[in-house]
Design a protein around this nucleic acid. Structure first.
Length: 215
DNA sequence: TACCAGGAGAAAA
DNA sequence: TTTTCTCATGGT
């Protein structure tokens, strides 16, 4: 992975879309809840689910656990996979409380914190890295389907590399820079929402799943 | 109508 | 070990 090319892609995205001010959450804990709810789901649906949840309870791990599975699943229904996500949220809240909450987790070094998050059922690599970057402000690059698709189309990735391989490649090339990782990932997602609609002649670097220029 | 969205884990091959 | 299946609502 060439640092210069990664920097060039970043400059183009930033020049096109500007700063994204991610993550859209009022607190680190809300960011973490959002990270679970957004798994394979559009953010607009997550916002509905968060709104319904905060209408019912204050957004704390204790309150979520006290709500119970059925009521939690009903509250987050708009985010889809509501039974699965209710189970995952409760598992995360149990671990969050057991580890001393935000204060306890913030005291851990990044590799240990990442391991702790990944040990929770329902928290995979991308969700853990969303939490690390946007809730704990650790220099961890988030690799999602958009990242893989964009850089494969640009010829910088084969596309079938493992998650860790890609993450380490970005982190090596860009250096440990939390602010840059924050903005870069947000810009990739922003680009995915614009894609071909703003480019009559797509160069193949858009993120539309069925773009003819990308096949 | 069909496809896709800011994945993860279990089951099957 | 790798691939496939399941979970589900809402927008386009």
């Amino acid at each position: 992975m060439e640092s210069a090319r990664l920097a060039a892609v970043y400059r183009v995205l930033y020049g096109t879309y500007g700063p994204q001010h991610w993550w859209p959450g009022d607190s680190p804990f809300e960011v973490m809840v959002g990270a679970v709810l957004t798994q394979n789901t559009a953010w607009s649906n997550v916002e509905r689910a968060l709104a319904r949840l905060t209408e019912r309870i204050p957004l704390t791990a204790e309150a979520i656990l006290a709500l119970g599975h059925e009521a939690l699943a009903e509250a987050i229904r708009p985010a889809g996979y509501f039974n699965v996500k209710a189970r995952r949220l409760r598992a995360f809240c149990h671990a969050f409380v057991a580890d001393g909450g935000l204060t306890g987790l913030s005291g851990l070094d990044t590799p240990t914190l990442r391991e702790r998050l990944l040990a929770v059922n329902g928290v995979g690599p991308e969700t853990a890295d969303d939490m690390l970057l946007y809730a704990f402000e650790r220099p961890v690059f988030v690799v999602d389907a958009y990242t893989r698709r964009l850089f494969a189309r640009l010829g910088l990735l084969a596309g079938d590399e493992g998650y860790e391989t890609i993450r380490h490649a970005f982190e090596r090339a860009l250096g440990a820079d939390t602010a840059l990782f924050n903005e870069y990932h947000a810009l990739i997602v922003r680009h995915a929402k614009a894609a071909c609609r703003t480019r009559p002649r797509c160069a193949g670097c858009c993120l539309n799943a069925h773009c003819p220029a990308a096949s």
